[in-house]
């Protein structure tokens, strides 16, 4: 086989590997393989899958590094106080804040109810047609790398983004330093959707800032065509 034939054969070879792949094992099995805790037979079958699966191989590489770091005794360079605050201080603040917020909301609802200010259910709302809503995914790692496009006919744009959340904290999103909007992860894991008016996303650079309580902010810089 010469070099030109080899190039073509590569494609067929990779297709063959793809065909042998089968379903991915659970992450626990990969972790077991990385730590050497799997029985020999099972380890061999997981290894055979990893040999033809990029996603599992990538995860296994990371899990091996995790295991290897056990033996490492080198001092670490990290902001320990920041982590400690998240674990300890965050809890105390949250406990207090939740109690205060709970009483405040209950009191507010009672007063509004008494004064007849609570919203009525049958209020008509204008719901945009789906033709006029567009979805754009933001990625912190690749943020701003390539300009994003939204159709001129879109009235609203759904910005989708991911923040590694803690379920008991409150999150706010701010577009270009504007008004802060409270946001909630729709899957409880950290994936968010934020609906914004298309007119706010003019040509040029924008930044979506997500605030995690008072602990940290995560920025998603991006550019619109």
């Amino acid at each position: 086989m010469n070099e030109g034939e080899f190039e073509k054969a590569l494609e067929r070879g990779f297709a063959g590997m793809r065909a042998r792949r089968g379903p991915c094992p659970a992450a626990e099995k990969l972790a077991g393989l990385a730590s050497g805790e799997l029985p020999v037979d099972e380890a061999a079958s997981i290894r055979a899958h990893v040999a033809v699966c990029g996603a599992c191989d990538a995860m296994l590489v990371r899990l091996r590094k995790f295991e290897e770091a056990k033996a490492d005794d080198l001092p670490v360079d990290a902001r320990e106080e920041r982590m400690r605050a998240k674990v300890f201080l965050g809890r105390r603040v949250r406990r207090g804040a939740v109690a205060v917020a709970g009483y405040a909301v209950a009191a507010g609802v009672l007063v509004c109810g008494y004064l007849g200010l609570l919203p009525r259910r049958n209020v008509e709302r204008t719901v945009p047609s789906w033709d006029t809503v567009e979805s754009i995914g933001l990625n912190r790692v690749r943020g701003g790398a390539a300009p994003l496009a939204a159709k001129a006919s879109s009235r609203f744009v759904i910005l989708s983004f991911f923040v590694d959340i803690r379920p008991d904290l409150r999150y706010e999103a701010v577009l270009d330093g504007g008004e802060a909007k409270s946001v909630t992860s729709y899957d409880g894991v950290g994936n968010f959707h934020l609906v914004v008016d298309r007119r706010l996303l003019g040509t040029g650079r924008h930044v979506l800032t997500v605030r995690e309580g008072n602990l940290r902010t995560v920025e998603f810089p991006f550019e619109m065509k």
């Binding site: 990290a78 920041r82 982590m83 590694d164």
Partner: peptide, 28 residues
């Protein structure tokens, strides 16, 4: 134990910010 857990998270995540978040998340 925070330093040991942080070291492992850093080895996995490959960056300090994620490793700090993951360490705090694990202890929480």
């Amino acid at each position: 134990h925070w330093a040991r857990i942080y070291r492992q998270c850093l080895a996995f995540a490959g960056n300090q910010a994620d490793a700090e978040d993951l360490t705090a998340q694990a202890f929480t």
